[in-house]
Design a protein around this nucleic acid. Structure first.
Lengths: 164, 164
DNA sequence: CGTTACTGATTGTATATTGCAAGTGGTTTT
DNA sequence: AAAACCACTTGCAATATACAATCAGTAACG
């Protein structure tokens, strides 16, 4: 964001996130629990290229959406975490998922999670954001019963199994 | 969308809207009441190039977000209209505006409208979407008092006047 | 009728970004 | 010691973008 086109909130959001890959990476970190370069590279539905991934991780870190730290278990490994700023993008993902489900040719398995989250409403979104804060910001989490992350995962696995 | 990367709702939405200009054009049509090529070209905060504008109008029309019709007042003039699919992007703009206002260096004048819409809640969003349907789809509109579009415009003008 | 301006574009050119394959230096596993 | 894995980096071709100039068909004006 060295030079910006205008101070409009929509435009500025677009300057940070308006490309084909940044939100894909954040989606995989949020909903797919990816924290390392290799996980984001190999386990991606869309097949991002390594140089683009490296560039976007740098950019997202610079723009305050990610932080990067050494993984104590492995000297070469870097671990990426979502910041509060990124966690607050959850409603954007919900809205994008809802619109995509309604207007685009989505596949069933890949949209059941969006549907669950859409129908769960703000209570579920807040619970999930608290779980992300616990996982990425080290905040204390108190919960009872299955987490939203677990419910999302279970829903996805069930859809996969049903489809074969 | 000849070949798609995956059937994920987030990804598909990104394939349609995930570039630097498409949402800017839709924003100007929704909130700035631009309907013609020249209006979108010259009265844009961000200064889009004419070839990019022509390309995006074609694309958005192909993807079912816009329709193009002849303007009866001028045989050379084309008038662009939002489709229902595009009108349903309003919540996305609200969420993007809210996030941008909170996390990016927006200017006051260009964010008062986003604030009004954010605080207005779903009732105001639905009213505004109905106004867009009336203006772009020719549907009948019944309302009393000032329209949401008028309130947004008044808020913006007041902010401009106050700032000098 | 002739000039001028305006319409929605298109064309040309230079630069920036992207996608893909391969390679880097180092670490861990076997 | 060999193989696999780690987070990237590099080279190169293809694509996208920015910016300026140009186009032909109206329309308004004198």
């Amino acid at each position: 964001m060295v030079e910006m086109r205008s101070g409009c909130p929509i435009n500025l959001t677009l300057e940070v996130l308006g490309d084909r890959w940044s939100l894909i990476i954040l989606r995989d970190m949020m909903f797919g629990n990816r924290r390392h370069f290799r996980e984001l590279l190999n386990r991606s539905e869309e097949g991002i290229a390594s140089n683009i991934l490296a560039d976007r991780l740098k950019r997202l870190t610079r723009d305050g959406l990610l932080t990067r730290a050494d993984d104590p278990s492995h000297k070469q490994k870097a671990i990426y975490s979502l910041t509060e700023k990124a966690i607050q993008l959850l409603p954007l993902f919900v809205v994008m998922g809802a619109w995509g489900r309604r207007h685009l040719p989505v596949t069933h398995e890949l949209s059941v999670r969006a549907r669950l989250l859409e129908e769960g409403g703000p209570d579920m979104w807040n619970a999930f954001m608290d779980e992300l804060r616990a996982a990425h910001l080290g905040l204390l989490l108190e919960h009872e019963g299955p987490t939203v992350a677990e419910r999302l995962q279970a829903t996805y696995q069930a859809a996969l199994a049903a489809r074969g």
